[in-house]
Design a binder for these strands. Structure first.
Lengths: 248, 248
DNA sequence: TCGGCGCTTTGACCTAAATCAAACTGAAAG
DNA sequence: CTTTCAGTTTGATTTAGGTCAAAGCGCCGA
């Protein structure tokens, strides 16, 4: 029904192209106008909390630039990241009153927000918007289930390799092929954030990153800049099926 | 927009009340008729595979009776359950060609299926169906993220307690309060299935169930019948916030 | 130029859960 | 009534990853 590349076929119309591409690739002019009317931007500094779990959340939004995380925290402080939001990702729960997770800006962040009430009204009048949102939510559910396999069954080394592969693949903006065909990118997360993503401690993350470096799977330039000389080699370390990670 | 108890306000109309309640609480007569026309039932025996990951899946369905699981398997056999389907749960991916996970009947299973093509057509004509499905998918996403916290950060004992609490709460059909206020239910999973749910080995599951029994948190009658004398006591063992598990 | 302070690395040690192995239980089949 | 066998329990041992502790490394601001 909806082409998988719909994210990339959007018309740029106004100040928030990503947003429109993300949700409204098939919007007609009047719907785009509605969106224009109810949208606004918010900026956050690195480290700032966007919203706390349980707080009233009267908007939905998409990330324009920067990175945000969704995390859950237990009473004694154990933390688990449950979502990683890169540019063009959607956040918000149409039909829900409150936030279910802490949302935090891990880098400087700009979000394009839409007041929830009018957004929901538009949704109920425009079937393909609800369908598009369903589509995106199913994608997130797939990602969450892939993540569950990682958390439940992968070794620390496999977890690290998987995370590097995910970031390298998903964050197309940062991903580059240099002359020799290496994949190059900057880690947008601290060791602690990686640990919260992977269900590890930051020490274990550090050790396994060092091990991958020692074994030549990655080259570290500084603490954050990663060079992957051979992406297939990295993929072998993830423990995933070798069919290129195609979600079948 | 949608009342949270919508699952319980449905009209019983014909042979598949659960199905209609799950997706069509607000359907008008002609939509129900459409559903009646495209629905059919399938039965599976305990242990049978409903569909393999990667197979073409040309239906969506809801569980009528019995229990099904979604699992992912790594090349070397490590398995992680990523979904547990109880009666009234929905399975299927509108807009997707193929199954993303193995779906297996863990007990005898009856599903009410709808051919995907006409179902999708109805969806695009009937905004509230797409919205309802979005609603349900968001619920699943919440459950998946709760599950991620469990997999990433909980101890074996907390995992077991959490699973028992989830089953006791979620499977309202099996849940009973007896004279003394105990919660009583039958475990619908083997130790191995519990292990695949929790990211543990079956031996660890067995040991921790024994430990909870030794400590009086649960009483075991046979291998499968569980009595929880004090549900709050069980909840304390889960590591979850004490506010009754309300998803805020 | 120098502290100071996040962030990271590395080392020594410990422990929760995995692994390996054996025995037990109970229901179904003969 | 016995056998069988899937599912389960329990014990002994190992190990991956956690915990605690101490440096190391930039980078920013004074």
């Amino acid at each position: 029904m909806t082409a998988p590349d719909i994210l990339n076929v959007g018309h740029d119309c106004g100040a928030c192209p990503i947003r429109h591409r993300a949700v409204c690739a098939r919007c007609e002019a009047d719907e785009l106008q509605t969106l224009e009317q109810i949208k606004y931007y918010r900026s956050y500094q690195a480290g700032q909390t966007v919203i706390w779990s349980g707080d009233r959340m009267d908007f939905v939004a998409s990330v324009v630039t920067g990175i945000a995380t969704l995390t859950q925290t237990m009473e004694d402080g154990r933390r688990q990241m449950v979502g990683l939001l890169l540019p063009s990702d959607f956040v918000g729960r149409p039909g829900r009153q409150t936030a279910a997770y802490d949302v935090t800006a891990t880098t400087d962040l700009v979000m394009c927000c839409f007041r929830k009430k009018p957004f929901e009204e538009m949704m109920s009048k425009t079937p393909h918007v609800a369908q598009r949102l369903l589509e995106m939510t199913l994608d997130e559910l797939d990602a969450a289930r892939e993540w569950m396999l990682l958390l439940g069954r992968k070794t620390a080394r496999e977890k690290i390799a998987s995370l590097l592969a995910i970031i390298a693949r998903r964050d197309a903006h940062l991903k580059l092929k240099n002359a020799k065909g290496s994949t190059v990118f900057d880690l947008p997360l601290t060791r602690e954030e990686m640990a919260d993503y992977l269900g590890l401690t930051l020490e274990t993350v550090s050790r396994q990153v060092s091990a991958l470096k020692r074994d030549g799977v990655i080259v570290l330039e500084g603490k954050r800049h990663i060079v992957v000389p051979n992406f297939d080699r990295l993929m072998e370390e993830t423990g995933d099926d070798s069919d290129g990670g195609m979600l079948v």
